[in-house]
Design a protein around this nucleic acid. Structure first.
Lengths: 110, 110
DNA sequence: ATGCAAGTTCGATAGTCGTAGAACATTAAA
DNA sequence: TTTAATGTTCTACGACTATCGAACTTGCAT
């Protein structure tokens, strides 16, 4: 059984979170996870990069404390650590998510 | 007369802003600028890195659209582009600043 | 057992980043 | 016109990063 290591709330740093979110690929994963509000496997997240590259990005997000991984058969179920992040850095993740959504919209008022 | 180039609001990207804020040195500059709410020269911002390194970080912040530089004699006056950032990415800068302040405090309730 | 599916890890590579010293540019002051 | 003060640019260097393919691991189904 694969065991993943997650940072505790104390170990999560603001710069670490910001850095993890500053990559377009990773930010899109986080946006995708936030949209469904439930666990997703890697395969359920649409991406353009190679499988190994995706695994790398997922690892970065996990080590930054942004996501939680749970083994389920051959897959890894991913969930956002929204509540912990909100408690530690209030508003940060939510405002970023709100911005990343509206940024990708072509016409805000349409 | 030195002329600085600043990105327009359209050119500012969320990942660019997050990346610029993800460095501890730069985040501390931004925190320092936000505290006074007025222009500051480079020399007025306390730092531990070399002069050339600071110049580099200031440049990164400027090119990300986070700060505005204005020549004043031999110095450069720096100001936060708070309003523009708030309009483009509502809540992002403010929540980050709130978190970076409370993070550095030893006892939140004391 | 065999094969398949889903991720992970390893090795390599090209690119970016933070750092600092030295040299330079510009402005103000003497 | 020197001299000093304030930043900027250049060059270099070590560390880190995003990317991929190949090999590997693990669990499930047949």
């Amino acid at each position: 059984m694969k065991q993943y290591q997650h940072p505790t709330a104390d170990q999560i740093t603001l710069t670490g979170v910001l850095h993890a979110l500053s990559d377009p690929v990773r930010l899109d994963y986080v946006r995708c996870l936030a949209e469904s509000e439930c666990e997703k496997s890697c395969g359920a997240i649409p991406t353009t990069v190679a499988k190994s590259t995706m695994s790398h990005h997922i690892r970065v997000l996990r080590e930054a404390g942004i996501i939680h991984l749970r083994p389920y058969g051959t897959q890894s179920l991913i969930s956002l650590r929204s509540d912990e992040l909100e408690k530690k850095f209030p508003g940060v993740l939510n405002s970023v998510l709100k911005s990343v959504k509206s940024t990708n919209v072509v016409e805000p008022g349409a």
